[in-house]
Each structure stands twice: as structure tokens, then as C-alpha cells.
Amino acid sequence: ARCQGVVCAMKEAFGFIERGDVVKEIFFHYSEFKGDLETLQPGDDVEFTIKDRNGKEVATDVRLLPQGTVI
């Protein structure tokens, strides 16, 4: 199932997405972002798939959504 959220933090090689369905942040590695990383910034709406890696939830297949998609 695809989830939606808003990019809330960006570091050197990874970032965090504030999920739209639950009050929780989820980790994503930049290699999982399908698009131009140069244009990705905090506040952007994205959709993603949640996978379990070593007992921790991570966002994979992260894709940009049109602004205003995530309420």
C-alpha cells in the first residue's frame, strides 16, 4: 500500500517524512527517491511504500506529489 506524507527533514544522505496517516516520522535514504534530488526540499508532498528493515520501518520508492496533495 502506498502512503503519503510531507518531507520534514533532510540530511547529508537521508531524510525524514512526516506521515499523513499517523503522527510519526519515517526515515528514507536518498537512493529511494525516484526523481531529481536537487529539487526535493522540506515541505514537499511525497508518496512512498513502507518496508521493514531490521525491525525498523523505512520509506522506499519515494515519489514527489503535486503540492497540496497531502492535507
Rank of each mutant, 00 (worst) to 15 (best):
V58F: 12
L37Y: 11
Q41A: 14
I26P: 02
D36W: 01
G35R: 01
V62W: 03
L64H: 10
V70C: 14
G15S: 01
F28P: 02
F16K: 07
F14T: 07
E32R: 02
G43K: 01
K34C: 09
F48A: 03
D36P: 09
V6R: 13
E47A: 10
E47V: 12
D61G: 09
I17D: 00
I71N: 12
V22Y: 07
V58K: 03
K51N: 08
A13P: 06
F48L: 02
K24F: 02
V7L: 04
E32H: 04
F28A: 01
G55V: 00
Q41K: 12
P42N: 09
V62G: 00
Y30R: 05
R63M: 09
G15C: 01
F16E: 01
G35D: 10
D61T: 03
A1I: 15
G35L: 01
V23T: 11
R53Q: 08
V22L: 13
L64Q: 06
G35V: 02
N54Q: 05
V46N: 01
A59R: 00
F48E: 02
C3L: 15
L64T: 12
I71P: 14
F16Q: 05
E25V: 09
V70K: 13
L65A: 13
D36L: 05
L37T: 10
D45K: 13
S31R: 09
V7P: 00
E38K: 15
G35A: 01
V58W: 09
D36K: 15
K11A: 03
I71H: 14
Q41V: 10
L40K: 05
G20H: 08
C8R: 15
E12Y: 09
E38C: 08
K34E: 13
T49R: 08
D36V: 08
N54I: 14
I71M: 15
F48M: 06
E57A: 10
V22M: 14
L65N: 11
K51H: 08
D44M: 13
A9P: 02
Q4H: 10
L37F: 09
E12F: 06
R2W: 05
G20W: 06
T69P: 15
L64N: 03
K51T: 10
F27Q: 13
V62L: 03
V58G: 03
G20Y: 06
R53W: 10
T39L: 08
H29M: 11
V46Q: 04
L40F: 02
L37N: 05
Y30E: 02
A9D: 06
Q41Y: 07
A1D: 15
F27D: 04
V6Y: 08
L40M: 03
V58Y: 15
G5E: 00
T60I: 06
F16N: 04
D52A: 12
R2F: 08
K34W: 04
E25H: 13
L65Q: 12
R63V: 12
H29E: 13
K11W: 04
Q41P: 01
N54V: 05
A13Y: 11
M10A: 01
G15N: 01
E25S: 13
R2Q: 15
R19Q: 09
G68D: 13
D36A: 10
A1L: 15
H29A: 12
F14P: 01
C8N: 09
A13K: 08
E18N: 15
R2S: 09
R19K: 08
A1K: 15
Q4K: 03
R63I: 10
G5N: 02
V7W: 00
K11V: 03
L65M: 10
P42W: 02
I17G: 00
D52P: 09
C3Q: 15
L64V: 13
V70Q: 14
K24D: 05
